[in-house]
């Protein structure tokens, strides 16, 4: 049965009409046309679809839309301010921290949540924070370096 659900996405209030059990990922990608979160497995096991739900990295592929109602959703599109990329995005570019890039949106989400909770993580903390995200191309070394670089930049600003 179709129903109306309201939540904020990247700071804007959005109303959508969907079946209660439609995955949040489908709503984000197809209804709201936000393509950063990717479909990878549909069972929350790869991290490609991660978004922040009230600040926590959450697999949007197995989060039904009803469970997102009233929450604050942030996708990788919402990490950068209008004209300033997120320090993570700058660092990922500087480190060329990707191969195919399909996993990157989800990894940025995990990393953004980490830096929010721990502005100066060490390498072990970064690895732990990203352990739910899979990367098949083998770009992990670069990705960890990029997150550490972004943390350093944020630290310098403070």
């Amino acid at each position: 049965m179709l129903d109306r659900y309201t939540f904020t996405v990247n700071g804007e209030q959005r109303d959508v009409v969907a079946e209660a059990d439609t995955p949040l990922l489908t709503v984000l990608r197809n209804t709201l046309r936000l393509k950063a979160a990717k479909f990878g497995c549909g069972t929350g096991l790869c991290g490609a679809c991660f978004v922040l739900v009230d600040g926590y990295p959450t697999p949007s592929c197995d989060t039904p839309v009803w469970a997102a109602a009233g929450k604050r959703i942030v996708t990788a599109e919402g990490l950068s301010a209008r004209d300033a990329p997120h320090p993570l995005q700058q660092a990922f570019l500087q480190e060329q921290a990707a191969q195919c890039g399909y996993c990157i949106s989800g990894i940025l989400i995990s990393a953004a949540a980490l830096l929010q909770a721990d502005p100066a993580p060490d390498e072990q903390a970064v690895v732990t924070a990203l352990d739910r995200n899979l990367c098949r191309c083998g770009a992990q070394g670069r990705i960890v370096r990029a997150v550490l670089r972004a943390a350093d930049r944020q630290g310098e600003r403070r």
Partner: peptide, 21 residues
Amino acid sequence: LPRLDLPDKIFGRPRFIHDLE
């Protein structure tokens, strides 16, 4: 040379066939 395809992928812009509408 920095990868030409990475900015789209890092900023979450549609780039993959999966994103094509």
